[in-house]
Amino acid sequence: MIQALGKMGISTFGWLGRCCIFLVYVASGFFIALKNWRDLIAQLYFVGVLSLVIIVVSGFFVGMVLGLQGYNTLVDFGAEESLGVVVSLSLVRELGPVVAALLFAGRAGSALTAEIGLMKSTEQLMAMEMMAVDPLHRVIAPRLLAGIIAMPLLAAIFSAVGVYGGYFVGTGLLGVDDGAFWSQMQAAVDFNGDVMNGIIKSIVFGFVITWIAVFEGYDTAPTSEGISRATTRTVVNSSLAVLALDFVLTAVMFD
């Protein structure tokens, strides 16, 4: 029992240690990644553009649901003009960064882990090392950088589309006044306090998700079983990390 606990502790700290050393090596390759900007753009395509459809569609639906639910609650108090506030604040502060991050973990994170795991199992990473090219700089760094750049953009798109989803349901279907919807929203949402904090959150999420994803891929056992496990771990761990970090960041930002 105690032994099992100790074993778990050792393996956890070992994992954390490898994770951090890995990050330091990768970060030292950011400059090289920026120099190879074509690679970076290709990675932005994979993590950003290919996640765009799911982000836009879910953003719109989440916004519409918020509009519907918010309206049903607010109309009891005769405060349906505040619908814009409810929709936009929930999206900009929480749902935009968090839901976009969870979708990103499922879409891009798992794909990154599988891709890098496959490169490892087919000896491509080893082959690069043998060609005196550091795969941490050449393969991992541009992917991590692309994740950090793409995530806030995706979250912003999610929030913006979501606000229009709420607007569509609220004013189009439920008859909330158009002007009140926007003006109350503008009065209540603060750019520095709300929008910027949401963007900062999503940058942190993008970093953590991509970090976990590329590390799991790099650290995987080079077998098909190992890769499938690593992919699952990426989605589970990065989703948990996002939710936990969201709490911490919210506590720090909106005290």
């Binding site: 290709a42 496959l118 490169m119 087919t122 082959a127 090392e129 090219v133």
Partner: peptide, 27 residues
Amino acid sequence: LRKRMSMLFQSGALLTDLTVFENVAFP
């Protein structure tokens, strides 16, 4: 040192997202 020696892997270990030409051009 590794620039002066090469290793041919069992699987070939070509970079799968590059063409044949780009693979040879890579080093």
